[in-house]
């Protein structure tokens, strides 16, 4: 099934932000906005919720801490106790560096892997973008056209009156 989109092309972030607000206020649902760089304040006008990735990082880090402590205490304290420098088998102060490093390692990797999965980032030979200029210097607002709608004038006017420099149509083969 083919999906049809109307793309409003903008060339300024502030115009885009106002346009998003007006388009949403007019009751039009925005499918997605593409930009060459992160725009501050776009989360609020688009209604994007704060990412929960920091929570993932926290729990992955916590796992790293627990794993590192368990590993060192079990290995040197129980599995093969050795007296090193006359210190106790479970010498917690000298376990701190490895615990810290593993905490950071697990937090960073856990969060980044989750980020790749939830954002669906994976290596692929072919990438479909709505408008190739959106990774260069243009901001693209994509609006999905409902089935059966053939007259684009209203949408076109809405986008143009809000500062779009171009309005294009694009069909995506699913």
């Amino acid at each position: 099934m083919n999906k049809k989109f109307v793309l409003g092309i903008y060339d300024d972030e502030d115009v885009l932000l106002t346009a998003i607000e007006n388009v949403r206020a007019a009751g039009t649902k925005i499918y997605e906005v593409f930009s060459p760089y992160p725009i501050h304040g776009i989360d609020d006008v688009l209604g994007i919720k704060r990412s929960r990735l920091p929570i993932v990082a926290f729990f992955c880090g916590l796992f790293g801490t627990c794993f590192a402590l368990w590993m060192q205490i079990w290995m040197l304290g129980f599995d093969w106790p050795m007296i090193i420098g006359g210190k106790p088998h479970i010498a917690l102060p000298s376990f701190i560096p490895v615990t810290f490093e593993l905490t950071v390692l697990c937090a960073a990797f856990g969060m980044v892997i989750t980020f790749f999965i939830v954002t669906n980032l994976k290596p692929s030979m072919k990438v479909n973008v709505f408008d190739k200029r959106s990774t260069d210097d243009k901001f693209v607002m994509a609006i999905e056209v409902k089935e059966g709608v053939t007259d684009m004038t209203a949408l076109n006017n809405l986008l143009r009156s809000n500062g779009a420099v171009e309005v294009n149509e694009k069909e995506v083969v699913k």
Binding site: E32, L53, A108, S134
Partner: peptide
């Protein structure tokens, strides 16, 4: 470069997460 770009499109949602990830990575680094 398609392979290297991991299918990045620059959507607002992806940028929002990207910024969060950068900030947390900076915090742990």
């Amino acid at each position: 470069y398609a392979l290297l770009s991991f299918g990045w499109t620059g959507s607002a949602k992806a940028w929002s997460r990207y910024e969060t990830v950068s900030l947390i990575l900076a915090g742990v680094a």
